Amino acid sequence: MQLIVAGERDGRSCVVGRTEWRHDPAATDVSATRVLELEVGDPSVRPVGTSEYRDYGIPVGTAHWNRVRFPAHQVRPLHYTNTIDTITVIDGSLWLVLDDGEHEMLPGDCALIKAVDHGWRVGPDGCVVSNILFGIPEK
């Protein structure tokens, strides 16, 4: 499994971090892996996007947790939001589209998107994700 962290470099959205991990299948007790720790109230994490802006109406300091099903082959063009997004692929596949290219995500993979330009291209079987969107201040 992997965690992709999407941030910005030189005003362009890109992968700024990637971590891979695997739970030990032989473990007989509960095991946990901290995926990330983030202070969502810090406006310095929000760069200015260059693509279409989408306001999801999530107030600063609140979070919305969603389960989303994307139909097969759907393309969501580049956009940026007033949120920091976490996404975990549950079923199917998709590609996280950033200025630096497309990044494949399979079941178990996660992404953190720090309000940068991003889009999605959904795989041939569709995709189900769990996402949490954290409202952050405008820059």
Rank of each mutant, 00 (worst) to 15 (best):
A27Q: 12
E37M: 07
M1Q: 13
L133P: 00
V35I: 15
M105L: 15
P124V: 02
G17Q: 11
R69C: 01
E39M: 06
L98H: 05
Q2P: 00
P59Q: 10
V40T: 15
G108P: 06
P43V: 08
D91T: 09
R9D: 12
T33F: 08
W95M: 05
V128F: 00
I4V: 15
D91C: 00
V15H: 09
C110P: 00
V45I: 14
D29Q: 13
L112A: 10
R22V: 04
A6W: 03
G126D: 04
T88E: 12
L94V: 01
Y56L: 15
V45N: 11
H103F: 08
I87E: 06
V60Y: 07
I113G: 04
Y80P: 00
I90K: 11
G11M: 07
D24W: 04
G126W: 03
D117I: 02
D125H: 11
A72Q: 12
R9N: 14
F134Q: 07
D125N: 12
G135C: 04
V75Q: 13
D85S: 08
D10G: 10
C110N: 14
A27P: 00
T83H: 01
G7V: 01
M1H: 13
E102S: 13
K139L: 10
F70C: 05
H103Y: 13
P43H: 11
P124N: 05
A111Y: 09
V5H: 08
Y80T: 09
G7N: 09
W65Q: 14
V16T: 15
V5A: 12
V15C: 10
D24M: 05
